[in-house]
Structure formats: structure tokens, C-alpha cells
């Protein structure tokens, strides 16, 4: 019956009072999801800790087989992509459409570089018979077999998250190019950024735990 005294933002959903509340709810919701993701990867890290405790020497031996230079390169690629993602969110908050699209595309390009490097790493592992499956080197001791199983599970699921992240970024960049996001409405860019940074954090832990552990005293 009552006539609204202020006009509602077209992007403001009915169940929210104002844009601030809507953004806060989106951020909180994304964090609840990310907590489940922490626990999801946490299970794999738990398995890593238990088996590393059981097979400390096999772990060091197996880690030598990984190419830490490529792992380090990918670490830097992801860190730069996190910077460009943060700058994309900032551009959205400042209603800078061109910058936003530029930074989002750069982020996606870096994500793709990561996956290409990962592809060549996996290819080498297949050639060296280090991939669990029918061509797995049977001479490998048990601890090393478990290391490689965990390596492929952890980096594989991480890479799957990167692919999903690129999908999300495609959606965001298309809408950004249409001028959807601005200082009043940038929730989707912010939330997509949270996901991207989370995937970066997982790699920050995977890099020393998988690649660098074999280098001590080598």
C-alpha cells in the first residue's frame, strides 16, 4: 500500500534492505562455502601429513622427481593473477569499466598459463611412468607410490578448481564488459575474487609441501 520513499537499485534483491546488506550477505555466504573448501582440501592435507609421517624418506625421494622450477614459476603466475584479480575488484569498486575488463582478462590469461605449465608437468610424469594406473612404475616403493597418488589428487583437484575459476571469470568478464558492475553493485566480482584468491592460497601450501621438500641438502 505504501509508496516507496526511495527508489530501489535494480540489482537489489527483494529480501535485502539495501545494497550494503546484500553485499555483506554475499561475502558471508561465499566464506561459508570457502570454509567447506578448506575442509575439503584439508582432508587431502591430512592424508599427506599421515603418510609423510609414515614414509619420510620415500617422500623426499619422490619429491626429487617433481620439477620445482616449474612449480615455482606457477607459484609466481598465481601470485600475479591474485594481484590482477584484486585490482579488478578495485576497478569495479571505482566503476572503471575498461580497467576492470583488462584486469579480469589478464587474470584469466595467467590462469591459463598456469594450466599450460601444469599440462607439461603432467605430460613428463606420464612419460616417466609416475602416474598411478596401468603404466605406474612397479619398481617404485610403496611410500613413493602413495606420494604420487596424493600429488595427482591434490594438484588435480586444484587444477579442476582453476578450470572452474576460469569459467566463473568468463561469466564475470562478459558482464563487466556490458557495464554491469560499478561502485554501487560489485558483489559478483568481489565473490569471484574470493574464490580465485582461495585457489591461490591452496597452491601457496602445495608448492613447498610437494615440490620443495626434496631440495634440502640436495
Amino acid at each position: 500500500m505504501s509508496t516507496p520513499t526511495t527508489t530501489r537499485h535494480p540489482k537489489l534483491q527483494e529480501h535485502f534492505y539495501n545494497m550494503d546488506q546484500q553485499l555483506e550477505a554475499s561475502t558471508l555466504g561465499m566464506w561459508v562455502f570457502l570454509v567447506t573448501e578448506v575442509m575439503f582440501f584439508g582432508g587431502l592435507f591430512m592424508a599427506y601429513i599421515v603418510y609423510r609421517h609414515m614414509y619420510p624418506h620415500a617422500w623426499v625421494e619422490a619429491s626429487h622427481e617433481l620439477n620445482w622450477q616449474l612449480g615455482g614459476l606457477n607459484t609466481m603466475v598465481l601470485i600475479v593473477s591474485s594481484l590482477t584479480m584484486a585490482l579488478a575488484v578495485r576497478a569495479a569498486m571505482l566503476s572503471e569499466k575498461k580497467q576492470q575488463v583488462f584486469y579480469l582478462l589478464t587474470t584469466m590469461a595467467l590462469g591459463t598459463v598456469f594450466l599450460v605449465v601444469k599440462f607439461f608437468e603432467y605430460k613428463a610424469k606420464f612419460e616417466h611412468h609416475l602416474v598411478p594406473g596401468p603404466h605406474f612404475n612397479p619398481a617404485l616403493e610403496q611410500g613413493m607410490q602413495i606420494f604420487f597418488s596424493l600429488y595427482f589428487m591434490m594438484t588435480g583437484i586444484h587444477a579442476a578448481h582453476m578450470v572452474i575459476g576460469l569459467g566463473i571469470m568468463t561469466y564475470i568478464v562478459i558482464n563487466a564488459a556490458k557495464g554491469t558492475y560499478n561502485a554501487e553493485y560489485y558483489g559478483p566480482v568481489e565473490v569471484a575474487g574470493l574464490y580465485w584468491h582461495f585457489v591461490d592460497i591452496v597452491w601457496i601450501f602445495l608448492f613447498p609441501l610437494l615440490y620443495l621438500l626434496g631440495r634440502h641438502g640436495a
Partner: peptide, 9 residues
């Protein structure tokens, strides 16, 4: 909420 995830871990 953010901190709780790491505490549970």
C-alpha cells in the same frame, strides 16, 4: 566464519 574454517582444520 573465515577464521573458524582454519580452526576446524
Amino acid at each position: 566464519v573465515a577464521i573458524s574454517g582454519f580452526v576446524w582444520l
